[in-house]
Amino acid sequence: MKLQPLRTRDPEQLRAIARELRVSILRTIHHAASGHTGSSLSCIDLLTCLYFAELRHYPFQPDWPERDRFVLSKGHAAPALYAVLHRWGYITSEDLAQLRQLASITQGHPDSRRCPGVEASTGSLGQGLSVGHGMALALRGQAQRVYVLLGDGELQEGQIWEAAMSAAHFRSANLCAIVDANRLQIDGLVAEIMNVEPIAAKFVAFGWNALEIDGHDVEQILRALEQARATTDKPTVIVARTIKGKGVSIFENKVEWHGKAPNAAQLERALRELGEPPTAAAP
């Protein structure tokens, strides 16, 4: 494997890391024959920028008190988080190979008691923003920041807006929510199932700083994270416009790939598109 640096703000290097992580996600889900392909691919550029450019964290001491916190509120994108944690050394290749297995630390949805580097157990949508805000309240007046990744379909949960209200009320500027707005949910288009737009305007009305970006453009992501960090009087939401299944043509914008695993032929095609030698070896 070609070694990439672990921490970088160079867009070229971040794109290269994201490509590797896409490969890792697809191999892992294929191996498990179960997992959320589309949802993991839509948010991996965001996770890459967070974990390789923005977050302060320390794999040798996952509970390092000075670390920034990340909550994957859309817990079904667990394979994306596991790919990042694996590349950082929090978990092993064997852990990836055990995705969704009985004894694994890589459960179907992130489990903070089992998996090092996972800050909060998530999977039931709508709860992570409140959990992240609790962390932000605990860290008030300190340097650490808290990032929460939400799905756009997840914004249909009423509790999201309770948390949006309280985070603004407490002026929790150390909290940054990122919406992976991939426009799709299990039953179809978010706009058709239950429209959540305009997302940014809603958060602004609740008292947040809101930014809208292309969630696959590394430069835009880095710039938005910088702006969030520079905002000191209110929480920030980054509405990241993304494509579900991004990076592989057969998965992109396909609602059926929300929670499906690729078979061997689909994996081979996907890896080819990603410029990876086609092997169905372990993740």
Binding site: E119, A120, Q127, S130, M135, A136, A138, Q159, A163, M165
Partner: peptide, 13 residues
């Protein structure tokens, strides 16, 4: 509901 999950976040910290 927000209170309970905020409580969880405080506890996790």
């Amino acid at each position: 509901q927000d209170m309970i999950c905020t409580a969880a976040g405080l506890s996790l910290s």
